[in-house]
Design a binder for these strands. Structure first.
Lengths: 342, 342
DNA sequence: CTGAAAGCGCTTACAG
DNA sequence: CTGAAAGCGCTTACAG
């Protein structure tokens, strides 16, 4: 068996309480005692048992990280490691552990979250996605369990802590940018509207069009499911209609890459024949052909801030809900062409 | 306070022991009692406290996942989510939790692993990397703590459980493939040789050359650090020497993308002027230009198998060490050209 | 500044 | 088939 606090206490001629207090660096223990106990701990290779400590102290020192189901995960590939890196940075600095959800379906994930909360596995939870009317989120709200979202909640915005980009605004900005280049026929290849990030971006797109008295047009919008089912055909239809778009907005770089390939097969050149712009600025976007103009959404920061908010919430359960919007940067590369100079 | 096993016991008119046994679905409890207790648990919304259960049962029902430091992580971007997906699949099926390392440096990671082991945070550990003479690995070995590596250990191969691709072989195969296409001047842009995966692939490359009585040549090898410092210059030098290579082997697709961009700047066409082949088959490799010929290493399976091995090890600490090699597939796309038909 | 005692919420031989 | 008791390894009022 491993050496316990009792073994140390006996060896150091103090009580277990004292050893415990030395571990916690309690101020009311004399330096002399601390020194002695620490020496004994060292020589006996004592190491505290977290489970016991946490059970007694009613804490876990770990936070739960809940990702959307794996299908979506695969999709948002580069998002995940980067947001984890942000979360880890804060977590590690505060000596907090990370507990990861493993569920593959919405229901499994929900059950896991219940287990985390009720089973006292974590002190708080970070939701890595925001879905319309999400069971998990509602549960967390009802339980008043500390949690933060990376993304904007679909509702109760003022009652929930979250970190997000201003997705409406960046979608608007992107359209404005294209508008500035002279584009008027701008199509949007959207993400799954179940996710708030997707609906926000779509909304920004529409708002930008309307602000220029351009109408939102059905035939300029491709749903995620249509694209996933047969992306090539969707793009073909889009580009062969009466007045095809001169610019495309894709909801994610990986989608943009795919579109570019289909366009190529259709012998439509980017950016000469059609411009393309996208979101999320994957690491590879500077290396593809043509280098992709994309919005950097600062994923690392998203993870970092979400963790900070969560820690504050854990410390002060009663504080008011806080939001934070993380800055984005439009990275202009070579996938968009100006029509003005024509 | 939450409802405990004692509350349930009182309400159901049984002892706490019995409630505990009902939770564990102990065979010696009568169906009648089980039914009654379960009804009470239901109606009282009882949920077991994992910390207490684990403390008493001396288990954790969670496995630790340790990644190499963040710098490397960023590099191997798509690897991480995919291997986690594989690990999650097995873990979730066995109702095991995942505890993630958060450290940014080797030393931090080591300390975390010590905390996981000594602090009884996990029942076993999966190392997501294999490094030369790794302190963490050595510690785990010495402690005889259950662990598995995704990758081949640098030593003690027959004493450690691991899952890997046969990296020597796939590097050989890749060179053979190029050889079959008529290439004789084949360069290698390698990874960090601190990692076994990189040195294995380099070794395979050399072995393949030698099997064709071709000599390994310094000027056909670019070190990871040289490439990272100034990739463009490294490629320029490589391609402007006396007899430049006709084919390049890159240790990872993301490196291949970068190389392709530099080649383009040098006005060297792929595959017309030089062929390029790579490992890991990122999701994007079919979408880049030219679509990249790459070796699919089946990352999902790597994670899945590693977890299975770990679980077996946890069950039978004394069993013999096992290895498993996961199959790979050469995905031929359009980045290599045959010289034979010229 | 330090200790004795109770308690965190479970599990598991042992006994019947 | 079920219960009483000890124990997992800590923490933390309370008392001095």
């Amino acid at each position: 068996m491993a050496v316990t606090i009792i073994d140390v206490a006996r060896e150091a001629n103090v009580s277990p309480s004292t050893v415990s207090r030395v571990i916690a660096d309690h101020p009311r223990i004399s330096e002399k005692t601390k020194k002695k106990v620490r020496e004994v701990m060292e020589s006996m290779h004592y190491y505290p048992n977290f489970q016991a400590r946490n059970l007694a102290a009613r804490t876990t020192q770990t936070i739960g990280v809940v990702m959307a189901n794996s299908a979506t995960l695969a999709f948002q590939n580069p998002f995940f490691p980067e947001v984890i890196r942000g979360i880890s940075t804060t977590a590690h600095a505060c000596k907090l552990g990370l507990y990861l959800s493993t569920g593959g379906t919405e229901e499994e994930i929900f059950q896991e979250v219940v287990a985390m909360v009720q089973g006292r596995k974590v002190d708080g939870i970070i939701l890595l996605y925001s879905r319309l009317d999400d069971k998990t989120l509602n549960y967390l709200r009802e339980m008043q369990f500390p949690f933060t979202i990376v993304g904007r909640p679909y509702a109760f915005e003022d009652q929930v802590d979250f970190v997000d980009n201003d997705n409406k605004k960046i979608a608007q900005d992107v359209v404005e940018y294209l508008f500035g280049l002279g584009h008027r026929e701008i199509a949007f290849i959207g993400g799954d509207l179940e996710f708030v990030v997707s609906s926000d971006r779509l909304e920004g797109y529409r708002a930008a069009l309307e602000s220029h008295a351009l109408k939102y047009q059905e035939q300029y919008f491709i749903h995620d499911f249509a694209f996933e089912q047969d992306g090539k055909e969707a793009i073909r239809q889009l580009m062969t209609q009466q007045s095809p778009p001169t610019a495309l907005v894709a909801h994610d770089d990986s989608v943009a890459y795919e579109i570019i390939r289909y366009l190529e097969q259709l012998e439509i050149r980017v950016p000469e024949d059609v411009s393309i712009i996208s979101f999320n600025n994957h690491a590879l976007s500077e290396h593809v052909k043509p280098p992709l103009t994309s919005v950097d959404i600062n994923i690392f920061e998203l993870g970092l801030k979400a963790t900070e908010l969560l820690l504050e919430r854990i410390k002060q359960p009663e504080r008011e809900a806080t939001h934070q919007y993380v800055d984005t940067t439009l990275i202009v590369r070579n996938s968009c062409q100006s029509l003005n100079t024509r």
